[in-house]
Simulated scan of single mutants.
Amino acid sequence: MRLPNGYGSVYKLSGKRRKPWIVVVSHGINAEGKVDREPIGYYRTRQEGLDALAIYHREPQYLAGNKKTFGEVVQEFLDYKASSKDISASYKASLRKLTPLHRHKFKHVTAHDLQLIMDSTTPSVSQVLKAAIKGLYKFAMMNSYTSTNLADALTPQAVDKSTLHYPFSPEEIHELWQHEGGFTADMALILIFTGMRIGELLTLKNSNIHEDYMIGGIKTKAGKDRVIPIHDAIKPIIQRYQSDKELFVSMSTSNFREHRWKNSGIPCLQKHTPHDGRHTCETMLNNANVNKVIIQRIIGHAGSDVDDSVYTHKTKEQLIEAINVLPTYK
């Protein structure tokens, strides 16, 4: 059956080939007065070629995606997420793990390729990486680069329960107070009595520290540039480290974790991670029956209940009052 003029061609190439049928489409006349023709794929049978040509006319982006490299699609995805300001540092860092696949054609990357990379990371990173891959392939499907989300076939590594976050006990908080004045103990107490992430503390600007609260936060829309109330008990600690420098504490997260925290010599810190301070704050606020939305505002979590929208403009005074219900355990 003859195809309509301008629709494209499907014909068989000479020689022994695994996919001998080529599909070619035209894009009009070029500057040299010749027909501008472009092959869009090779197929095992003529019918497969005809089906591909039909898809091209129905969804040209689908076959256009066949030519893109994995790296090109990742970059498009990052640009898309950046434009909506909906991407975290950990999300971007996890996608960098996929760099070995960047030169491959996007359509040739398999779930097995992705699984091998996930298996080469830590359990916590593999959890984040699966979420990032799921978002990447959802974006690719939205742009008709693929019809399958390979993330559905991936299995992240199981997280060792011994590494899960759990709160400091009252006795451990008391132990930290016995070491007040030491840098790591002071930072741990700030994390516990503000609910900050370690990354938020290490990027906090001195200019954003006020008498009863700070302006800071990273990672999520709800967490960025939020009001972080200061518990009265840690005000002297914060004042001790304030200076005319830009950052409250100038140190990388890895340096703090690997050197300061692990080598602090404080027994209770060897059983915890810096993030446990944040978890401790949230747990103590819950135990004190603080309003859930107030807790979300302090911690920087987005509200999930419909009624939460009523509380989106809680005052600084309410947040400061809430943080000060926490017992100090001195």
Rank of each mutant, 00 (worst) to 15 (best):
L319A: 07
A158M: 03
G33I: 08
Y43T: 09
Y145A: 07
A302E: 15
S147G: 08
Q178F: 00
D232A: 15
N255T: 14
I230C: 11
I209K: 02
P39I: 02
Q270V: 04
P123V: 02
N66T: 00
E38H: 10
G300N: 05
Y62T: 02
V125G: 00
R17E: 01
K314V: 11
R2S: 10
N30Y: 11
E317Y: 10
K68R: 15
S162N: 10
R240A: 13
A233V: 03
L326W: 05
R2V: 07
L247D: 00
H165T: 07
T110R: 04
G217L: 07
F139K: 12
P327A: 05
G15P: 02
S169R: 11
T315F: 09
L98N: 01
W177Q: 04
Q242L: 13
T203V: 00
A185I: 05
N324G: 15
L98A: 03
L50H: 12
Q318K: 04
D160G: 10
K67Q: 10
K34Y: 10
I234C: 10
Y80Q: 05
S120V: 03
K271P: 01
T273A: 07
D160S: 15
V227T: 11
Q296S: 14
T155S: 13
N263D: 15
L164R: 14
Q47F: 06
E72N: 06
L114I: 02
Y241I: 12
D308W: 02
R197A: 05
R297W: 01
R226Y: 08
K107D: 05
N5L: 14
I320C: 05
S94Q: 13
N206E: 06
G300W: 04
T122K: 15
A158H: 12
R257L: 04
M118W: 09
E317D: 15
Q157G: 15
I320Y: 07
F193V: 00
K161W: 01
G71L: 09
T203D: 08
A222Q: 06
R226K: 15
E258K: 08
Y80K: 08
E200N: 10
H231P: 14
I294K: 11
G8W: 09
G41Q: 06
Y145G: 01
R58T: 10
N255V: 09
K161V: 03
G182C: 04
I40F: 12
E211C: 00
K219I: 04
Q47W: 07
S14G: 04
L101N: 05
R240Y: 12
A54H: 11
S83Q: 15
F183R: 12
T253H: 05
W177G: 07
L98Q: 07
K85L: 13
L247W: 08
L53I: 03
F106N: 09
I234N: 12
S254P: 00
Y329A: 02
V310W: 07
H272Y: 06
H231Q: 10
N263T: 05
S147V: 08
S252C: 02
E72L: 01
Q115A: 12
K221V: 03
G6V: 05
T184L: 06
L204M: 13
T203W: 06
H259D: 10
K224F: 05
L136E: 07
V73G: 02
S14T: 11
N263F: 02
I192K: 00
I238H: 14
N263W: 03
H27V: 00
T148E: 09
M214Q: 07
